[in-house]
Protein backbone atom coordinates (compact mmCIF):
# COMPACT_ATOMS: atom_id res chain seq x y z
CA UNK A 1 0.00 0.00 0.00
CA UNK A 2 1.07 3.53 -0.64
CA UNK A 3 2.60 4.72 2.59
CA UNK A 4 0.86 8.04 2.52
CA UNK A 5 -2.52 6.37 2.07
CA UNK A 6 -1.74 4.03 4.93
CA UNK A 7 -0.84 6.97 7.12
CA UNK A 8 -4.13 8.66 6.35
CA UNK A 9 -6.18 5.53 6.92
CA UNK A 10 -4.64 4.89 10.29
CA UNK A 11 -4.85 8.48 11.39
CA UNK A 12 -8.54 8.38 10.49
CA UNK A 13 -8.99 5.16 12.45
CA UNK A 14 -7.26 6.62 15.47
CA UNK A 15 -9.30 9.77 15.52
CA UNK A 16 -12.45 7.73 15.01
CA UNK A 17 -11.48 5.50 17.95
CA UNK A 18 -10.81 8.45 20.19
CA UNK A 19 -14.14 9.93 19.20
CA UNK A 20 -15.95 6.66 19.92
CA UNK A 21 -14.33 6.43 23.33
CA UNK A 22 -15.15 10.03 24.23
CA UNK A 23 -18.55 9.77 22.59
CA UNK A 24 -19.46 6.74 24.66
CA UNK A 25 -18.58 8.64 27.82
CA UNK A 26 -20.79 11.50 26.75
CA UNK A 27 -23.49 8.99 25.85
CA UNK A 28 -23.37 7.39 29.31
CA UNK A 29 -23.51 10.74 31.06
CA UNK A 30 -26.26 12.02 28.79
CA UNK A 31 -28.48 9.00 29.39
CA UNK A 32 -28.03 9.23 33.14
CA UNK A 33 -28.73 12.95 33.20
CA UNK A 34 -31.67 12.87 30.79
CA UNK A 35 -33.35 9.97 32.55
CA UNK A 36 -32.39 10.96 36.07
CA UNK A 37 -33.10 14.67 36.08
CA UNK A 38 -36.89 14.50 35.56
CA UNK A 39 -37.17 11.96 38.37
CA UNK A 40 -35.05 13.94 40.78
CA UNK A 41 -36.76 16.12 43.36
CA UNK A 42 -36.16 17.48 46.81
CA UNK A 43 -38.10 14.74 48.55
CA UNK A 44 -35.76 12.17 46.99
CA UNK A 45 -32.81 13.82 48.63
CA UNK A 46 -34.30 14.67 52.02
CA UNK A 47 -36.53 11.74 52.94
CA UNK A 48 -36.10 8.12 53.77
CA UNK A 49 -38.41 5.54 52.15
CA UNK A 50 -41.91 5.61 53.64
CA UNK A 51 -44.31 2.67 53.70
CA UNK A 52 -45.03 1.37 50.23
CA UNK A 53 -42.06 3.21 48.77
CA UNK A 54 -41.03 0.28 46.65
CA UNK A 55 -44.53 0.11 45.23
CA UNK A 56 -44.38 3.74 44.23
CA UNK A 57 -45.24 5.37 47.57
CA UNK A 58 -43.77 8.46 49.24
CA UNK A 59 -40.19 8.86 50.31
CA UNK A 60 -36.66 9.29 49.08
CA UNK A 61 -33.19 7.85 49.17
CA UNK A 62 -31.67 9.79 52.04
CA UNK A 63 -30.97 6.44 53.68
CA UNK A 64 -28.82 5.42 50.72
CA UNK A 65 -27.06 8.78 50.43
CA UNK A 66 -26.09 8.92 54.09
CA UNK A 67 -25.35 5.21 54.11
CA UNK A 68 -22.98 5.54 51.18
CA UNK A 69 -21.24 8.53 52.73
CA UNK A 70 -20.76 6.59 55.97
CA UNK A 71 -19.53 3.48 54.18
CA UNK A 72 -17.10 5.26 51.89
CA UNK A 73 -16.08 7.74 54.58
CA UNK A 74 -15.32 5.04 57.12
CA UNK A 75 -13.47 2.94 54.59
CA UNK A 76 -11.46 5.93 53.40
CA UNK A 77 -10.37 6.78 56.94
CA UNK A 78 -9.34 3.19 57.61
CA UNK A 79 -7.62 2.88 54.25
CA UNK A 80 -5.70 6.09 54.92
CA UNK A 81 -4.62 4.87 58.34
CA UNK A 82 -3.22 1.76 56.70
CA UNK A 83 -1.90 3.23 53.46
CA UNK A 84 0.01 6.14 54.91
CA UNK A 85 2.27 3.89 56.99
CA UNK A 86 2.64 1.59 53.99
CA UNK A 87 3.59 4.39 51.63
CA UNK A 88 5.93 5.99 54.15
CA UNK A 89 7.52 2.68 54.94
CA UNK A 90 8.08 1.82 51.30
CA UNK A 91 9.37 5.27 50.40
CA UNK A 92 11.13 6.61 53.49
CA UNK A 93 12.22 3.54 55.39
CA UNK A 94 12.78 0.58 53.19
CA UNK A 95 13.72 1.88 49.74
CA UNK A 96 14.45 -0.72 47.12
CA UNK A 97 14.61 -3.89 49.16
CA UNK A 98 13.28 -7.24 48.05
CA UNK A 99 10.58 -6.94 50.65
CA UNK A 100 9.29 -3.66 49.27
CA UNK A 101 9.23 -5.14 45.76
CA UNK A 102 7.13 -7.97 47.12
CA UNK A 103 4.83 -5.64 49.02
CA UNK A 104 4.30 -3.45 45.96
CA UNK A 105 3.54 -6.37 43.70
CA UNK A 106 1.19 -7.82 46.23
CA UNK A 107 -0.70 -4.52 46.62
CA UNK A 108 -0.85 -4.09 42.84
CA UNK A 109 -2.31 -7.56 42.57
CA UNK A 110 -4.79 -6.75 45.31
CA UNK A 111 -5.88 -3.85 43.12
CA UNK A 112 -7.02 -6.30 40.49
CA UNK A 113 -9.10 -8.50 42.78
CA UNK A 114 -12.75 -8.31 41.64
CA UNK A 115 -14.92 -6.49 44.13
CA UNK A 116 -17.38 -9.37 44.28
CA UNK A 117 -14.51 -11.42 45.72
CA UNK A 118 -13.97 -8.78 48.42
CA UNK A 119 -17.65 -9.03 49.16
CA UNK A 120 -17.62 -12.81 49.36
CA UNK A 121 -14.45 -12.78 51.45
CA UNK A 122 -15.84 -10.12 53.75
CA UNK A 123 -19.02 -12.11 54.19
CA UNK A 124 -17.07 -15.27 54.95
CA UNK A 125 -15.12 -13.48 57.64
CA UNK A 126 -18.32 -12.00 59.03
CA UNK A 127 -19.97 -15.40 59.21
CA UNK A 128 -16.89 -16.63 61.00
CA UNK A 129 -17.04 -13.76 63.48
CA UNK A 130 -20.82 -14.03 63.74
CA UNK A 131 -21.32 -10.46 62.59
CA UNK A 132 -24.33 -9.87 60.36
CA UNK A 133 -24.48 -7.52 57.41
CA UNK A 134 -23.73 -4.10 58.86
CA UNK A 135 -22.02 -0.77 58.40
CA UNK A 136 -18.92 -2.30 59.98
CA UNK A 137 -18.90 -5.19 57.53
CA UNK A 138 -19.36 -2.87 54.56
CA UNK A 139 -16.64 -0.55 55.76
CA UNK A 140 -14.23 -3.45 56.08
CA UNK A 141 -14.94 -4.78 52.61
CA UNK A 142 -14.59 -1.31 51.11
CA UNK A 143 -11.36 -0.74 53.02
CA UNK A 144 -9.92 -3.76 51.26
CA UNK A 145 -11.06 -2.28 47.96
CA UNK A 146 -9.61 1.16 48.67
CA UNK A 147 -6.37 0.07 50.30
CA UNK A 148 -4.41 -0.73 47.14
CA UNK A 149 -5.75 2.34 45.33
CA UNK A 150 -4.80 4.66 48.12
CA UNK A 151 -1.44 3.16 48.99
CA UNK A 152 -0.38 3.24 45.36
CA UNK A 153 -1.47 6.85 44.95
CA UNK A 154 0.23 7.90 48.18
CA UNK A 155 3.41 6.10 47.30
CA UNK A 156 3.52 7.84 43.97
CA UNK A 157 3.05 11.23 45.61
CA UNK A 158 5.66 10.58 48.27
CA UNK A 159 8.19 9.37 45.75
CA UNK A 160 8.09 12.85 44.19
CA UNK A 161 9.54 14.47 47.32
CA UNK A 162 13.03 15.64 46.41
CA UNK A 163 15.78 13.72 48.18
CA UNK A 164 17.44 17.01 49.14
CA UNK A 165 14.38 18.07 51.08
CA UNK A 166 14.57 14.91 53.15
CA UNK A 167 18.32 15.45 53.53
CA UNK A 168 17.73 18.96 54.86
CA UNK A 169 15.58 17.54 57.62
CA UNK A 170 18.04 14.76 58.36
CA UNK A 171 20.86 17.28 58.45
CA UNK A 172 19.05 19.11 61.24
CA UNK A 173 19.09 15.93 63.26
CA UNK A 174 15.55 14.77 62.48
CA UNK A 175 14.89 11.06 62.70
CA UNK A 176 13.22 9.26 59.80
CA UNK A 177 9.90 9.38 61.63
CA UNK A 178 10.16 13.12 62.23
CA UNK A 179 11.19 13.68 58.63
CA UNK A 180 8.29 11.57 57.41
CA UNK A 181 5.61 13.11 59.59
CA UNK A 182 6.68 16.74 59.67
CA UNK A 183 8.28 17.27 56.29
CA UNK A 184 7.23 14.57 53.84
CA UNK A 185 3.57 14.53 54.83
CA UNK A 186 3.35 18.32 54.73
CA UNK A 187 5.06 18.50 51.39
CA UNK A 188 2.66 15.88 50.03
CA UNK A 189 -0.52 17.31 51.50
CA UNK A 190 -2.21 18.16 48.19
CA UNK A 191 -1.34 14.76 46.79
CA UNK A 192 -2.60 13.06 49.92
CA UNK A 193 -5.91 14.88 49.62
CA UNK A 194 -6.17 13.82 45.99
CA UNK A 195 -5.49 10.22 46.95
CA UNK A 196 -8.15 10.41 49.64
CA UNK A 197 -10.72 11.71 47.18
CA UNK A 198 -9.76 9.14 44.58
CA UNK A 199 -10.23 6.29 47.02
CA UNK A 200 -13.44 7.78 48.35
CA UNK A 201 -14.83 8.02 44.82
CA UNK A 202 -14.01 4.40 44.13
CA UNK A 203 -15.45 3.31 47.43
CA UNK A 204 -18.74 5.14 47.09
CA UNK A 205 -19.39 3.71 43.65
CA UNK A 206 -18.77 0.08 44.39
CA UNK A 207 -21.77 -2.18 44.69
CA UNK A 208 -20.53 -5.74 44.60
CA UNK A 209 -18.40 -5.52 47.73
CA UNK A 210 -21.18 -4.08 49.89
CA UNK A 211 -23.88 -6.36 48.51
CA UNK A 212 -23.48 -9.04 51.18
CA UNK A 213 -21.48 -7.15 53.74
CA UNK A 214 -23.49 -3.99 54.35
CA UNK A 215 -26.98 -5.23 53.60
CA UNK A 216 -29.74 -2.72 52.96
CA UNK A 217 -32.20 -0.86 55.13
CA UNK A 218 -34.77 1.87 54.86
CA UNK A 219 -33.58 3.74 57.91
CA UNK A 220 -30.67 6.09 58.32
CA UNK A 221 -27.36 4.63 59.48
CA UNK A 222 -27.48 4.49 63.26
CA UNK A 223 -24.98 1.94 64.46
CA UNK A 224 -21.86 0.20 63.26
CA UNK A 225 -23.60 -3.09 63.80
CA UNK A 226 -26.78 -2.43 61.84
CA UNK A 227 -27.20 -2.77 58.10
CA UNK A 228 -26.91 0.38 55.99
CA UNK A 229 -28.23 1.32 52.60
CA UNK A 230 -25.96 2.49 49.80
CA UNK A 231 -26.50 4.39 46.57
CA UNK A 232 -25.24 1.75 44.15
CA UNK A 233 -27.54 -0.81 45.69
CA UNK A 234 -30.39 1.70 45.71
CA UNK A 235 -29.96 1.97 41.96
CA UNK A 236 -29.77 -1.78 41.60
CA UNK A 237 -32.75 -2.69 43.78
CA UNK A 238 -35.08 0.03 42.56
CA UNK A 239 -34.32 -0.82 38.97
CA UNK A 240 -35.22 -4.43 39.67
CA UNK A 241 -38.77 -3.60 40.77
CA UNK A 242 -41.50 -3.89 38.16
CA UNK A 243 -42.94 -0.42 38.88
CA UNK A 244 -42.04 2.42 36.53
CA UNK A 245 -42.26 5.02 39.33
CA UNK A 246 -39.68 3.14 41.33
CA UNK A 247 -37.47 2.59 38.31
CA UNK A 248 -37.56 6.33 37.75
CA UNK A 249 -36.11 6.67 41.21
CA UNK A 250 -33.33 4.30 40.27
CA UNK A 251 -32.42 6.75 37.50
CA UNK A 252 -32.47 9.63 39.95
CA UNK A 253 -30.33 7.66 42.40
CA UNK A 254 -27.84 6.93 39.66
CA UNK A 255 -27.73 10.62 38.83
CA UNK A 256 -27.07 11.50 42.46
CA UNK A 257 -24.29 8.92 42.61
CA UNK A 258 -22.81 10.15 39.35
CA UNK A 259 -22.88 13.76 40.52
CA UNK A 260 -21.10 12.84 43.74
CA UNK A 261 -18.44 10.95 41.81
CA UNK A 262 -18.01 13.74 39.28
CA UNK A 263 -17.73 16.35 42.04
CA UNK A 264 -15.05 14.25 43.67
CA UNK A 265 -13.05 13.90 40.52
CA UNK A 266 -13.42 17.63 39.90
CA UNK A 267 -12.19 18.14 43.45
CA UNK A 268 -9.12 16.06 42.67
CA UNK A 269 -8.27 18.32 39.74
CA UNK A 270 -8.80 21.51 41.72
CA UNK A 271 -6.66 20.35 44.61
CA UNK A 272 -3.77 19.97 42.21
CA UNK A 273 -3.52 23.76 42.26
CA UNK A 274 -4.59 24.52 45.84
CA UNK A 275 -3.23 23.97 49.31
CA UNK A 276 0.20 24.35 47.89
CA UNK A 277 1.27 27.47 49.81
CA UNK A 278 3.95 25.60 51.70
CA UNK A 279 4.88 23.11 49.05
CA UNK A 280 8.44 23.49 47.91
CA UNK A 281 8.88 23.11 44.19
Amino acid sequence: MDKRKEELIFQGLMIASALIVIGSLVFVLAVVVLKGLPALNLAMLTQTPKGGYYLGGEGGILNAITGSLCLAGGATVLALLLSLPIALFLQVYSGKSRFSEFARLSLDVLWGVPSIVYGAFGFTIMVFLRVRASLLGGVMALTLLELPIMSRALEEVISMVPLELKESAYALGATRLETAMRVVVRQCLPGILTAILLAFGRGIGDAASVLFTAGYTDSLPSSLFRPVASLPLAVFFQLATPFPEVQQRAYASALVLTIIVLLISLGCRLIGGRFTAHVIR
Binding site: P162, E164, L165, E167, S168, A169, Y170, A171, L172, G173, A174, T175, R182, V183, R186, Q187, L189, H278, V279, I280
Partner: peptide, 21 residues
Protein backbone atom coordinates in the same frame (compact mmCIF):
# COMPACT_ATOMS: atom_id res chain seq x y z
CA UNK B 1 23.03 9.55 64.25
CA UNK B 2 20.55 12.37 64.88
CA UNK B 3 22.84 13.72 67.60
CA UNK B 4 25.74 13.78 65.12
CA UNK B 5 23.67 15.58 62.54
CA UNK B 6 22.57 18.10 65.14
CA UNK B 7 26.21 18.87 65.88
CA UNK B 8 27.08 19.18 62.21
CA UNK B 9 24.88 21.45 60.12
CA UNK B 10 24.54 21.31 56.35
CA UNK B 11 23.90 23.97 53.75
CA UNK B 12 23.04 22.23 50.53
CA UNK B 13 23.70 23.16 46.94
CA UNK B 14 20.28 24.58 46.27
CA UNK B 15 18.17 26.06 49.01
CA UNK B 16 15.65 23.54 50.28
CA UNK B 17 13.34 25.26 52.70
CA UNK B 18 10.98 22.87 54.45
CA UNK B 19 7.30 23.01 53.43
CA UNK B 20 6.24 25.36 56.23
CA UNK B 21 6.50 29.00 57.30
Amino acid sequence: VTEIRKRIGLLSQRPHPLPMS
